[in-house]
């Protein structure tokens, strides 16, 4: 599904990712943990194609195609979704309109027909209900005046409606209380199947209790320095990142 090889990314004149390797198979959930400043969000933005995140070396294959050649919107249409750490407010554009425009843009890019508006609303309402969000959200401007938790849940609504092949969740758990965290985890679990993959960037192990990842990776100083099963996350929770070997940190 996703194959990242020796990825180097510069932001401004600063090297952030310094030879990152990661392979995510269909239907797999991978967690990426790591200290602040290790490059976790940079990885998400680079994969989603944000301007200013310059790939200086390496390659990324997504579903067999060269991801780095695609514009941000082409990556979305190809099935890549980034749940933002800080979802952006779009004043004056209501959620329903935005989501439908996004879905139709993706469908059009894939040569599919526009979505039927009744089917669309039904699908969105179902997702809202599952995430315990009020229908009135549809008429509110995208993320404007939303609480931190509402913004994160709104990302999950978008993900569920857009049905990506690969979803990258950038600290979707941060700022959520226990109940909201469970809702988000359930939202992800509902979407899991043999085809769809997830990369879950997080600081904490608690989301992973609900999400049970196939693999856990530790990102430090722009590289994956440790990979393992879910027990790695538990160890990080107990010991912090102190066990990372000093030479890795210095690298």
């Amino acid at each position: 599904m996703l194959k990242i090889n020796n990825l180097h990314v510069q932001v401004g004149d600063k090297d952030i990712l310094k030879g990152l390797n990661l392979e995510v198979g269909p239907g797999e959930v991978h967690a990426i943990m790591g200290p602040n400043g290790s490059g976790k969000s940079t990885l998400g933005y680079s994969l989603a194609g944000r301007d200013g995140y310059e790939v200086t070396d390496g390659s990324v294959l997504f579903d067999g195609q060269n991801l780095l050649e695609l514009e941000a919107e082409e990556r979305a249409a190809a099935g890549l979704f980034l749940a933002f750490q800080y979802p952006v407010e779009i004043p004056g554009v209501n959620n329903a309109y935005f989501l439908r425009a996004a879905l139709n843009a993706q469908r059009k890019a894939r040569g599919e027909d526009e979505v039927d508006s009744i089917d669309f609303l039904r699908a969105v309402r179902e997702q809202l209900k599952a995430l315990q969000m009020d229908d009135s959200l549809l008429k509110r401007a995208v993320n404007e005046g939303f609480s931190g938790g509402e913004k994160k849940r709104n990302e999950m609504v978008q993900m569920a409606v857009l049905q990506p092949k690969l979803a990258i969740l950038d600290e979707t758990d941060s700022g959520l209380d226990i109940d909201a965290l469970k809702l988000v985890a359930e939202g992800v679990n509902r979407l899991r199947n043999d085809e769809r993959s997830f990369v879950v960037i997080t600081h904490y192990q608690r989301l992973l209790e609900h999400l049970v990842p196939d693999q856990v990776h530790v990102l430090s100083n722009g590289r994956i320095v440790e990979s393992g099963g879910r027990e790695l996350a538990e160890r990080l929770e107990q010991e912090g990142y102190g066990f990372l070997s000093p030479e890795e940190d210095a690298a």
Binding site: G49, G52, E73, V88, I90, P91, G92, V93, A105, Q106
Partner: peptide, 28 residues
């Protein structure tokens, strides 16, 4: 830029993103 990227990451091309942001700003 953040708003433009947010919309593009959901599948709108740059021109569509721009038009939607302008519209949202003005329609209020």
């Amino acid at each position: 830029e953040a708003a433009r990227f947010y919309l593009r990451s959901r599948g709108l091309n740059d021109a569509e993103a721009l038009a939607l942001l302008k519209f949202g700003f003005a329609a209020a």
